[in-house]
Design a protein around this nucleic acid. Structure first.
Lengths: 244, 244
DNA sequence: TGCTGTGAACCGGTTCACAGCA
DNA sequence: TGCTGTGAACCGGTTCACAGCA
């Protein structure tokens, strides 16, 4: 079963040859298409994170039958400033027409190209959260993120089926990573988060998205992003207290 | 049932008289204690978000029987730089001893004082996510965050009991907010997120923590924090590709 | 006239580097 | 000698403001 899963990873690696900066690969991608690619070879991280938002908004505009939209309209739709919208698009080319705006279908296609040009492969650790997470974001997920396996430490979860994933024991992780191509792990196990993180690191994971309230200490070559929901709640209250 | 819940909110308001910036209230709190409070009346948002991390780390050190620790040791524990640790503490006073370090118990007490001096009251929208979220962070939650009610739009969830919360219909929201003291809402309903957000805004919510993949457009007086898990996964992969 | 594309200014937050204290 | 506390430099990212094009 494990071997089967590990093999499943391999076909997904297609097109993921090297590990250079993704933004760089996007720039390459743009050049290879002969599009109007600016010399700039890095697209800011935050800008890339917004691309999917733009795509969703554009779908909405398309459904409304709008052919052309301004940065202002797009910005209002996703709750950003028009300046940041124009800036983001400027990183990936001159996509608009001064005085007029952006063609919805063209913009959609360009952003879709970029997002789908790189598929992120990750493993998910923590079965209980997986089912929720899936109901939340699976519809938009398959564009460029692929959960190649779901694991857990708790015996009562091992072997269960959640969506398309059969929950594997955490001890299968090294074999999964040996297949290569897996970029990172989502840590969503509330108990023993620090210990599980150590196991992830030892198995060779290069990045961890930490959804637990625990802080992790990892070697410098492993990158960690901490989504601290409690902290976010505190920040939310701070922000609206400030305004009110 | 609704009335009962709305009333339950009120006792929790104790000590939450005005809506000034929390950092400012922290500074006031420090001054009222006669502690060595610097003239600085704002503590950066990110700094406050880290305070709970420090507290957890300090508990660990205390269990290990350590009386005094350096900013370096604390930083390693939570995966930050020592400079940011010293900077954070400098916002709330001169807590350490040059050449020696920080006394664990004193530091613990000071941070605990600050975090517990303000309780954040929020409502949670989206029953399915609530149960997971609880297993993840309830142990550390009660320090300064309080979910006063859990709501949902889906009939099959209304009336169910999740932890200590009975799921209320979203239509109860205005009555809950009328009680006052509620600072924000967590939006964790995968379907119709934008429509539900409109309902939240109309009911008078001043801040929304958006856990859905949807982008929201709200009036400028409402603040939104978007925790975009898909975006975080992409960012994670970008980061570790960069390094590797 | 209206909107894009973008250099310059700005801003919050982090890191550097070191004076000064124990 | 060793560590804190902190001004200055730095940095990624956002906003401003406007030249220039349709």
């Amino acid at each position: 079963m494990l071997r089967k899963t590990a093999e499943n990873v391999c076909p997904l690696r297609a097109g993921i040859e090297d590990k250079k900066h993704w933004a760089w690969r996007i720039a390459q991608h743009l050049e290879s298409k002969g599009g109007p690619c600016h010399a700039r070879h890095t697209v800011p991280l935050k800008s890339i994170m917004r691309m999917r938002w733009y795509l969703t908004a554009l779908e909405g505009f398309q459904e409304q039958g709008m052919d052309v939209i301004s940065s202002r309209e797009l910005a209002d739709r996703i709750g950003m400033s028009s300046a940041i919208v124009r800036k983001d698009f400027s990183y990936i080319g001159e996509l608009g027409t001064p005085g007029l705006g952006y063609r919805v279908s063209y913009l959609q296609q360009r952003i879709h190209d970029i997002l789908s040009s790189n598929t992120c492969l990750i493993v998910w650790v923590g079965a209980q959260w997986l089912s929720n997470a899936l109901s939340m974001f699976v519809p938009t997920m398959d564009l460029n993120i692929r959960i190649v396996a779901a694991l857990d430490t708790r015996p009562e979860w091992i072997g269960k089926q959640i969506g398309e994933w059969e929950i594997l024991p955490l001890s299968d992780l090294p074999a999964l990573l040996a297949g290569g191509g897996v970029d990172g792990a989502v840590l969503a196990l509330p108990e023993d988060a620090r210990r599980v993180a150590d196991i992830l690191v030892e198995a060779g994971v290069k990045g961890i998205l930490n959804l637990t309230p625990a802080t992790l200490s990892v070697p410098p070559e492993v990158s960690v992003r901490h989504v601290d929901l409690l902290g976010e709640m505190m920040a939310l209250v701070l922000e609206c207290s400030e305004a009110g």
